[in-house]
Structures are given as C-alpha cells and as structure tokens.
Computed example of a mutant assay.
Amino acid sequence: MTTAYTPGRTRWHARTAVHLWPARQTGRRASWVLVPEPTTVPQTRRRVRRKLSDWGLSAQAEVVELLVSEVVTNAMRHSWGAVMSLAMDDGTLRCEVQDTNPAPPRVREVHEGDEGGRGMYLMQALSTSWGSHPLSTGKVVWFEVACEPETAPAETEESRDDE
C-alpha cells in the first residue's frame, strides 16, 4: 500500500502501487548508499546537483536539492542507514530513499517557534507527487518532480555514482 499526495487533491489518499524499474529501461539512474554521519546530507546534495547537471537538469536543481535534503535528513535521523536512488524518465525525476525505519512520514502541526516539522509541507508544495510505502525491512519515501532537460544530457546510459 502506498500513501501518496498529489496536488489538486484535498485529502491524503492511499493507493496500491509500487514503483519498480524494469531491467532494460532506457532512462537515467543513479543511486547511493547513505550512512548516518554528519557529512551525509551535504554530500548527498552535492552528488544530486552534479548528477542533475550531467543530465541537463540544472534548472530544477534547487528544488530537487531541497527535497532531497528533507528526505535524507529524516532517514539519517530516524534510521540506521539508507539507499537513495534517482531516476529520470519521460520528463519526470523520481527520488526514492529506502531506510530501515518502518514508521511512515507524517504531517505534523507546526507552530511559529518550531524548528522542524515542515518537511512534508515542502513535499506538498514543491513536488509533483510524493508518498511512501512499507517494506519488510523499513520503508521507501519518494517524490517526483517534472523536469525537462535544457540540453542533451552528458550521460545516456544507466549510471551509478558510488562516490
């Protein structure tokens, strides 16, 4: 069961869908193993920015970086590690973060003086859609952003950046 939010809908809804990448799909891919260290979030932002530049998607980099910061920060705070994947297909960039914590993300009531709790509101405002689904080993939190390349991408084959 996937919990998802799509702009234009006034309520949270559940739908059964799991995003799977077909083995021979032609889109661009990147993935990283994330460990809970102080440098993980900024390092992941830099990797994402470089990858988006390689793919000719620099115009969307600020929004994607902000959303990546949210999902990676939450994974690092609430689990023992994670795997993050980016996929670009048919004008849609999808980011998935799989972590070891089974608790789904939740929208919290936020007050003016609160330092946190706004991540899900950012997901609603800046992504095309987002959601999560449980796994036997934790969960996946994902978001999608509409992206059109400015120029031909530098990489056209499946890529994996293990920096």
Rank of each mutant, 00 (worst) to 15 (best):
A152P: 01
M120K: 00
L93E: 02
V83E: 09
E96V: 14
T44G: 05
L126A: 12
R106E: 14
P104K: 04
G8T: 11
C95Y: 00
A61G: 11
G91E: 06
W12F: 12
E65R: 03
H111D: 14
A14F: 01
D99H: 01
P102Y: 00
Q60M: 10
S127L: 08
W55E: 13
A75H: 12
V63T: 14
A146C: 04
P36M: 06
L57E: 03
M84K: 07
R49C: 05
Q60W: 02
S79G: 13
T6Q: 01
W130Q: 04
Y121V: 02
V35H: 07
K51A: 14
G138E: 00
R94G: 08
V83R: 07
T26Q: 13
C147M: 04
S132W: 10
H19D: 14
S159Y: 11
N101R: 03
L57A: 11
T156N: 07
V107F: 01
V110G: 00
R106T: 15
Q124E: 08
V35P: 01
G27S: 11
S159E: 13
S79F: 12
T151L: 05
S31A: 12
S129Y: 01
K51V: 15
T128N: 09
E155F: 08
R11C: 14
E155P: 00
P134C: 01
D114K: 04
R47W: 08
S127D: 01
A154I: 09
R94I: 02
R11D: 07
S79R: 08
V83C: 04
E37T: 15
G116K: 02
R160P: 10
G56Y: 01
E155H: 05
A125W: 02
M84T: 05
H78T: 13
E148V: 01
R9F: 09
A154G: 09
V41E: 02
S129A: 10
Y5H: 11
P104S: 12
P42E: 11
A154D: 07
V140F: 06
P38Q: 09
E96F: 10
G113R: 05
P7E: 04
G116M: 03
E157G: 13
A4W: 00
L126K: 08
R77G: 06
T26H: 13
W142Q: 12
T44Q: 03
T73V: 08
R15I: 09
V145I: 07
D54M: 05
T3H: 04
L34S: 01
S129I: 03
D99K: 05
T6V: 15
T16W: 09
R160L: 13
G8K: 07
A82Q: 06
N74D: 12
